[in-house]
C-alpha cells in the first residue's frame, strides 16, 4: 500500500508536466501564428493601395504629388527589410495615407463614389486588422512569457529551453490610429 502513494504522486507530476508542456507549446504556436497574421494583413494593405491611388487619380488630378508620395511609401514598405526599417516605412505609409484622405475631403464627387467608399472601408478595416493582429501577438506573447516565468511552469520551460517572446512595440503612438473615416 505504501508503495502506491509515491507512484501516484509521480504519476500526477508527470501528468502535470505534460499538461504544462503542451500549454507552452500551444502559446508558442499561437504567437508564431499571430506574427504571420501581421504579415498577411500588411500584404493586404499593400495590395489595396494601387487600387486606391487609381480611383483617386480619376477625380483628383491636381493631387499628383500626394498620390506619388503614397506610391513611393508603399514601395518602400514592400522593400523594407528588418523590423526597425519596416516599422519606419510603415509609419511613413500611414502618414501619407492620412494626408491623402485629408485631401479627398475637397472632392465631394470622389467621396460619393461607390468604388472609393468601398476602398476606404477596406483600407480602414485593414489598418484595424494590422493593429489588432499586433495586439493579439502581444497578448499571446504576454501569456507565453507569464507561463515561462511563473512557478512552477518555469521549471518545464527551462527544461525544454523555451524562450521569451519579444513584444512588438511602436515608436510612435500615432501609428495605431487608422486614417479616420467619417460616416
Amino acid at each position: 500500500m505504501a508503495g502506491w502513494i509515491p507512484m501516484i504522486i509521480i504519476g500526477l507530476i508527470a501528468l502535470w508536466a505534460v499538461f504544462a508542456y503542451n500549454r507552452l507549446i500551444g502559446f508558442r504556436n499561437q504567437m508564431k501564428n499571430a506574427w504571420s497574421q501581421i504579415d498577411v494583413q500588411l500584404k493586404r494593405r499593400y495590395d489595396l493601395i494601387p487600387n486606391l491611388v487609381n480611383t483617386v487619380k480619376g477625380y483628383a488630378q491636381h493631387e499628383r504629388a500626394t498620390l506619388e508620395n503614397v506610391t513611393k511609401a508603399r514601395q518602400q514598405a514592400v522593400d523594407a527589410s528588418g523590423v526597425a526599417d519596416q516599422a519606419k516605412a510603415e509609419n511613413f505609409l500611414s502618414q501619407t495615407l492620412r494626408s491623402l484622405f485629408a485631401v479627398v475631403e475637397n472632392y465631394p464627387d470622389l467621396k460619393a463614389n461607390r468604388n472609393f467608399l468601398e476602398l476606404q472601408e477596406q483600407l480602414t478595416s485593414t489598418e484595424n486588422r494590422v493593429s489588432f493582429a499586433r495586439q493579439f501577438y502581444n497578448d499571446t506573447t504576454l501569456k507565453l512569457n507569464n507561463q515561462i516565468e511563473k512557478a512552477p511552469s518555469n521549471v518545464i520551460a527551462r527544461m525544454f529551453s523555451f524562450h521569451q517572446g519579444e513584444f512588438f512595440e511602436l515608436e510612435e503612438t500615432t501609428q495605431r490610429e487608422a486614417p479616420k473615416v467619417k460616416f
Partner: peptide, 19 residues
C-alpha cells in the same frame, strides 16, 4: 451592401484580435 460589408469586416477584425 455597404453596411453589411462594414459589419463583416468588424467581425473579421475581432476574430483576429481574439484569435
Amino acid at each position: 451592401d455597404r453596411y453589411h460589408r462594414v459589419f463583416q469586416n468588424t467581425v473579421e477584425e475581432m476574430m483576429i484580435s481574439s484569435g
